[in-house]
Amino acid sequence: MELFTPEFGLVFWMFIAFLGLFFILAKFAWPFIIKSMDERADLIDKGVAYAQEAKTKLDTAKAEADKLIAEARGQQADILRDAAKMRNQIIEDAHAEAAVEAKKVAEAAQLSIEQAQKESAKQLKQEAGEIALQIAEKVLRTNINNDAAQQELVQRYLSEVETKN
């Protein structure tokens, strides 16, 4: 039973040692260690949370970017389609306009040609009239003199008229 009987002296020393150790550690060491470990645990937790948050943020940003790119692609296609349409339109319009313009020019040319023809015919008529008048005048004048001479005169004026024209 000797082993089961606590020795008073040893109880006393153990009490002093344990209380001393407890007060020293509780005052100077444990609170600091506990605080540091808690802080580190916090830091790690926060780090993990932050990383997760960053990941979700990145994911949403990526999704948004993809969406934007897809939208842009669609817009680009639309724009290209519109441009092609417009180009065709412009070409068609130009063709049509050109055709109209050409027709107008041709008509105008036709008109001026006709005008010129009319004028020249009129002038010819006038000149022919004048020449006939001159011839008639000269015939009238020489007729008085002789027939032969008259004939020759008429011939001469006629040739004159021919060379003139």
Binding site: L3, E7, F18
Partner: peptide, 8 residues
């Protein structure tokens, strides 16, 4: 030693 565990 039981004195030690006794104190604890």
């Amino acid at each position: 030693n039981i004195a030690v565990t006794l104190v604890l």
